[in-house]
Design a protein around this nucleic acid. Structure first.
Length: 476
DNA sequence: AGTGCCGGGAT
DNA sequence: ATCCCGGCACT
């Protein structure tokens, strides 16, 4: 890097730096040297002042790199230093990550034990001692979890949800580094999808595991996704967005004009589009993925606003807080193209009349809305079940123009799609930046390297921050 | 004005 | 791939 700058400078050829002035002067004045050559006798600071408007970066780098200890071997030294700093600076994150990993492992072990127990119960030859050991471990784990939950909030009706959500999603929301999460970069909050994805801890499984611990007010063998939208989010200060996740039903809506068919599986909607609209009868193998652009993913919030939510406005943005950006940016294309992954359990009964049901409609295609789209309570939605795996949704609502900018202007479907997408999808006007920059990730609120370490310690920043990219160390 | 970071250029 | 920075959105 340093060499590059020197090369740059030499190419500019404006001046030759006197050795006595030190590398810092040259570094700081690198870009400005054309305008304000630095007298060799000046100090580093004076050299900077002499420059037109010194780049802060250059200032810091120059200052840092002039330290003799670092000047020994350039880049290698610097990177080592950075690593060392990260080691020193982020112990909390690492500790938190470890704890979470442990918790996740516990959860996994619980689920594994559940499976094992099933096997064990059906098998005769399994030694009993081993089983009891595992059971003891499991009991410890579950007991600890339950105790933790109870001690945290004695009023929570269904503490298991809290636990499972904490394990599943909140480690990111809670500010933990997503080292364990972002390796795949994908998870789905929809319960059906989770069920089919063994690599992620699944809320239904956790809920099942803990069902015996539920309070007596447990309302019966209903759909877990409905049951889990406990009202604790209203009673406690816990960030509400998390609560939304388990209560989302992901449906797939055909966007073909005058169609609006809604299927519960990506494969189904793809097949529908392929066969009905695109007139292709071949299997998904011969698909070129075009059908991806003709359907959208609908996150159907099964929360009933009237279910004890009278204290909140139905249109409150807190109820409909958008999912984390990372989640929103997740590889939805993969979920939509790999039917197996997003295959949802379509047999889950849906409320047949959901006047206050909230929708999150978003799409991963050309017109992506960064803010969830929902139906206000003043509108009405109606489900019209047609068969076991498909039904249609219709609603009436005040028309709100759906704003979207094409992410890919060269997309072949742009023209047709602007009409498709501009159908009157109701948008909550109170949602922040619903019509703002749709492609830009919302700015992180947490402290970033720049704030934490300051410009003077730029070498302590994470690489991304140094490159003016999204901070990797303090992920929101 | 300060900050975060996207998009894109340079290497 | 890595590094860097202009410029924009946002606070």
């Amino acid at each position: 890097m340093h060499a590059r700058r020197l090369v740059k400078r030499s190419l500019i050829g404006s001046r030759v730096y006197a050795p006595g002035s030190g590398a810092a002067a040259g570094e700081a004045g690198e870009r400005e040297s054309r305008d304000a050559p630095v007298p060799s006798g000046h100090t580093e600071e004076e050299a900077v002042k002499g420059a037109r408007k010194p780049s802060l970066k250059s200032l810091c780098n120059g200052g840092q790199r002039d330290v003799p200890a670092q000047g020994q071997n350039g880049g290698t030294q610097k990177s080592e230093n950075t690593n060392g700093v990260e080691e020193l600076r982020a112990p909390e994150h690492r500790r938190a990550g470890r704890t979470l990993d442990m918790e996740k492992d516990n959860t996994r072990s619980v689920s594994l034990l559940e499976q094992k127990r099933k096997v064990v119960s059906s098998s005769i030859d399994v030694p009993h001692a081993r089983k009891s050991d595992e059971e003891v471990d499991m009991d410890k784990v579950t007991a600890a979890m339950v105790l933790t939950s109870l001690s945290t909030s004695p009023l929570v009706r269904s503490p298991p949800v809290k636990v499972s959500e904490g394990l599943n999603g909140s480690w990111k929301d809670g500010g933990f580094t997503p080292s364990s999460y972002s390796s795949s970069g994908f998870w789905s909050w929809s319960a059906p999808s989770d069920q089919s994805n063994p690599s992620t801890p699944s809320p239904p499984l956790s809920a099942d595991s803990f069902r015996p611990f539920r309070m007596s007010s447990f309302s019966g063998p209903q759909d877990d996704t409905l049951d889990e939208q406990d009202t604790s989010s209203l009673l406690f200060d816990e960030p509400i967005p998390r609560k939304r996740k388990n209560s989302m039903k992901v449906m797939f809506k055909c966007l073909w004009k005058n169609c609006g068919k809604v299927l519960s599986t990506a494969a189904g909607i793809q097949r529908h589009i392929r066969t009905v609209h695109l007139g292709r009868n071949c299997d998904s193998e011969c698909s070129d993925g075009e059908e991806d652009f003709y359907y959208t993913e609908i996150k159907l919030n099964t929360d009933s606003v009237a279910d004890g939510l009278s204290s909140l406005s139905p249109a409150s943005p807190s109820v409909l807080s958008p999912p984390p950006a990372a989640e929103h940016r997740r590889t939805e294309t993969s979920s939509s193209t790999s039917g197996a992954k997003s295959e949802s359990s379509s047999s889950t009964p849906l409320s047949r009349s959901a006047p206050s049901a909230l929708y999150l409609v978003h799409t991963d295609h050309a017109y992506q809305a960064t803010a969830p789209v929902s139906i206000p309570s003043t509108s009405s939605a109606r489900f019209t079940p047609s068969n076991s795996s498909s039904f249609s949704i219709s609603w009436q609502s005040p028309p709100v123009t759906f704003t979207g900018t094409p992410a890919s202007p060269t997309h072949s479907q742009t023209q047709g799609f602007s009409e498709q997408r501009s159908q009157t999808i109701p948008v909550l006007s109170s949602l922040p930046r619903a019509s703002g920059s749709l492609s830009r990730k919302s700015r992180g609120e947490g402290k970033k390297c720049r704030k934490v370490y300051g410009m003077e310690n730029r070498d302590m920043w994470c690489t991304a921050c140094r490159w003016k990219k999204a901070c990797q160390r303090f992920v929101d």
